[in-house]
Amino acid sequence: MGKNQWVVHHDNKWAVKGEGNSRVTKTFNTQKEAANHAREIAKNQKSEVIIQNRHGRIRSKDSYGNDPCPPKDREH
């Protein structure tokens, strides 16, 4: 399982950042673009996507790994 991918507000843009990394992977103009990029990485690495709002609070989480106890997620 790879690193979880975080979508964070960064310098008035949205960025994808691997969990534990000090630098962002890539920045985007919209949160939607960043989330789509993070999902592609998470699918390849079988990890999770965690999306934060502008204030740093977790807005959404989604797992793309082999979760033995998958939640009943109705969001996606």
Rank of each mutant, 00 (worst) to 15 (best):
N44F: 02
R39A: 14
S63E: 03
C69H: 14
G65Q: 07
N53H: 10
V49N: 05
I41Y: 09
G65H: 10
I41N: 07
N53E: 02
A42L: 01
K46D: 05
D67M: 00
Y64V: 08
S47N: 12
E40S: 15
S60N: 12
Y64N: 03
H37R: 12
P68V: 01
K61C: 07
I58W: 05
K46V: 00
V49A: 05
R59G: 04
A42S: 12
Y64Q: 02
N53P: 08
Y64K: 03
A42I: 04
E48K: 15
S60T: 06
Q52A: 09
V49S: 06
Q45W: 07
D62N: 01
N44W: 01
N66T: 04
P70C: 03
Q45K: 14
D62Y: 01
V49H: 11
P70R: 07
D62C: 01
E40F: 08
R59Q: 15
A38S: 11
E40A: 14
D67N: 14
I41Q: 11
H55S: 12
I50L: 12
V49E: 09
G65I: 02
I41F: 11
S60L: 12
R39P: 03
D67L: 00
I50E: 09
Y64I: 06
K43C: 04
R59H: 12
R54A: 11
I41V: 10
N36P: 02
Y64H: 13
S63M: 00
K61A: 06
N36I: 06
H37M: 04
Y64T: 04
V49C: 11
R59N: 11
G65T: 02
S47I: 02
K46A: 10
N53Q: 03
G56H: 09
R54Q: 12
A35E: 15
P68Y: 03
Q45D: 10
R57G: 05
Y64P: 02
D67H: 02
E40D: 14
V49L: 09
N36W: 06
C69L: 09
C69R: 09
R39G: 04
D62A: 01
H55T: 12
N36C: 07
N36R: 15
Q45N: 14
K43G: 03
A42G: 07
G56S: 08
Q52C: 13
R57W: 10
Q52M: 13
K46C: 04
R54V: 15
K43T: 06
P68M: 01
N36M: 10
N66L: 01
I58E: 14
G65R: 08
P68N: 03
A42R: 00
S63C: 08
R54Y: 01
H37C: 04
V49D: 02
A35K: 14
G65F: 09
N53V: 14
Q45I: 00
G56L: 09
G65V: 07
I50Q: 03
R59I: 13
G56T: 07
R39V: 14
K61P: 00
K46T: 00
I41T: 07
